[in-house]
């Protein structure tokens, strides 16, 4: 009998064609709608990117962090520091902010990796608190009350307000697509196989020579880089930063976790579906105040207990869909 190992699925080929009109719509959006819609799409873009990063950590590497706000906040502050104190142009500061976050994540990893499972989760949260408290002490960056980007730096993005919104819009789209592509390519690489092995059976993977620590470290650094860069974009759009906003567990972790859990953890499509559901719920429940978060939390709890594979997981299992094939499928070929 002969077998062929393949990764492309029918859905992935259809998905490729589906992608074109969606991409077209996104790229042309600024020309047929207003700035409110653009801001909404940017917000969706960065939540999608953050969700991809968290999904990579928790869904694939088993690193369930509730402290990723650490790197989002650091990225935001790195943007302010690089542009104000070092005179780096704002757009060039975005990747540098990611690098700065990854650089700080390296020693941090050696501390928090001493904690396993749920303890790792809370440990990462403590680290994020440490960063928040330290930055509240840095008076050059506004201390506890925070600061705004000087007008000169804002202008360096683009002269006009419309121009700035356009630049931020396309940067946001690029970062979201980049995040999806990064996770997709990482999972298809050798690391991806190791990750899947770790997720499915940590002990067994180790005995087969998969280097858990290095693989997890890599993922942690990549997620920190992503978080830092996204954080820089978020606060470039917001223009104002403060320790409480930059290191908010509610904004950057609770929402992101809900997106991934509801959409489907451990699948690339999960965060995409989750982001759409999240924003739909948000606009539906906008007038209900705290009830919005209560309902969102309850939905996430129910999904986790009743359908841990998430909404996308339910659909994918039903129809055997896989738009981002990272698994290798063994297919039996007819006898020659």
């Amino acid at each position: 009998m002969t077998y062929r190992i393949e990764r492309a699925t029918r859905a992935s080929r259809i998905g490729l064609w589906l992608l074109l009109p969606i991409l077209g719509a996104l790229l042309s959006l600024p020309y047929w709608t207003g700035s409110a819609d653009m801001r909404l799409v940017v917000e969706m873009a960065y939540f999608l990117a953050l969700a991809q990063m968290w999904n990579l950590l928790a869904g694939y590497a088993g690193l369930v962090s509730v402290g990723q706000q650490a790197y989002i906040g650091l990225g935001g502050y790195a943007l302010f520091a690089l542009t104000i104190l070092a005179g780096v142009p704002p757009l060039a500061a975005l990747p540098l902010a990611g690098l700065a976050a990854a650089l700080i994540a390296l020693p941090t990893a050696f501390v928090v990796f001493r904690l396993r499972g749920a303890y790792f989760a809370i440990g990462t949260w403590v680290v994020a608190e440490v960063f928040r408290l330290v930055l509240a002490q840095v008076t050059a960056l506004g201390g506890g009350t925070g600061m705004s980007l000087p007008i000169g730096i804002v202008r360096a993005v683009a002269e006009s307000r419309d121009g700035r919104e356009l630049v931020i819009y396309y940067t946001g789209i690029a970062i979201a697509i980049g995040a999806v592509a990064l996770v997709f390519l990482l999972l298809r690489s050798r690391h991806g196989l190791a990750l899947t092995a770790i997720r499915d059976a940590e002990g067994a993977a180790e005995s087969l020579g998969v280097d858990n620590f290095r693989t997890k470290l890599w993922v942690y650094l990549v997620a920190a880089f992503g978080g830092g860069m996204i954080g820089a974009l978020i606060f470039l759009q917001k223009i104002r930063i403060s320790p409480d906003a930059a290191f908010s567990v509610g904004d950057w972790t609770a929402n992101v976790i809900f997106i991934v859990v509801i959409g489907g953890i451990g699948r690339i499509e999960g965060p995409i579906v989750g982001t759409l559901v999240f924003f739909a719920l948000r606009s539906l429940l906008a007038d209900f105040g705290a009830w919005y978060m209560i309902i969102l939390g309850a939905v996430a709890v129910v999904v986790m207990l009743k359908a841990p594979q998430g909404l996308w997981g339910l659909v994918a299992e039903r129809f055997d869909l896989d738009f981002f094939p990272v698994r290798r499928r063994v297919r039996r070929l007819p006898e020659a």
Binding site: A58, G117, A118, I257, I265, A290, G297, V301, M304, P308
Partner: peptide
Amino acid sequence: LLNATLGRGILPPLLVTFGLSIIIQNALLQ
């Protein structure tokens, strides 16, 4: 609630209690 999260790996207890945390905070807020 929580008994249903046990024995199924680290994600369910962690994420369910995290969700519970957000629910309690917002219920008290309300």
